[in-house]
């Protein structure tokens, strides 16, 4: 057993301090220690993207980051996306356009899309498809997800 390591991570705007085992994956820290279970695990080889969160504003697969690596960072999860009671435009887009079915890949997919629109506020369909290529969805065939992201991009452009 290795020495526990102290960490402090700002998660969704709240400072969270803990002593963790060095090998604890960030996704398990979020899910098990903080009860933020909206972030999911879908694979063990960093391909599926279900565990995507934002670390210092950039999308990352939280199953491929040790919690200790996020010490001092700002982490945003799906739970921190809505602004008070108001859904983020991407959440709204996924709802409006039926961008989800079983919902398991959805939090990661949305967090990836946040990163995508941050870098490219008006992506083409091809750019959206490429931009979410780190996220696997088995239900939707992606088409409604593409529509959802377009929907959000338009709304964000208006506001």
């Amino acid at each position: 057993m290795s020495e526990p390591v102290p960490i402090t991570i700002n998660v969704n705007g709240r400072k969270r301090s803990a002593m963790v085992e060095a090998r604890l994956l960030l996704v398990h820290f979020l899910r098990e220690s903080l009860n933020l279970t909206g972030t999911h695990v879908g694979c063990d080889t960093s391909q599926c993207g279900a565990c995507t969160v934002l670390i210092d504003g950039h999308s990352a697969k939280s199953c491929t980051v040790f919690a200790v690596q996020a010490d001092g960072a700002e982490v945003q999860t799906i739970e921190g996306l809505a602004d008070g009671g108001e859904l983020h435009p991407l959440q709204d887009g996924f709802w409006e356009e039926h961008g989800l079915q079983c919902g398991y890949c959805t939090p990661g997919m949305i967090m990836s899309a946040v990163n995508l629109l941050e870098n490219n506020p008006a992506p083409s369909e091809a750019e959206i498809r490429e931009g979410i290529s780190g996220n696997l969805c088995r239900c939707t065939g992606y088409q409604h997800i593409v529509n959802a992201i377009q929907h959000a991009a338009e709304r964000m452009a208006q506001s």
């Binding site: 933020l36 695990v41 799906i78 959440q91 709802w95 039926h98 919902g103 959805t106 939090p107």
Partner: peptide, 20 residues
């Protein structure tokens, strides 16, 4: 629009692994 979605898009759904 689906009535399932608000919980799913906000990370509030409970899958098996979320049960403690």
């Amino acid at each position: 629009k689906r009535r399932e979605d608000p919980r799913l898009i906000q990370g509030q759904a409970t899958y098996v692994d979320d049960i403690k």
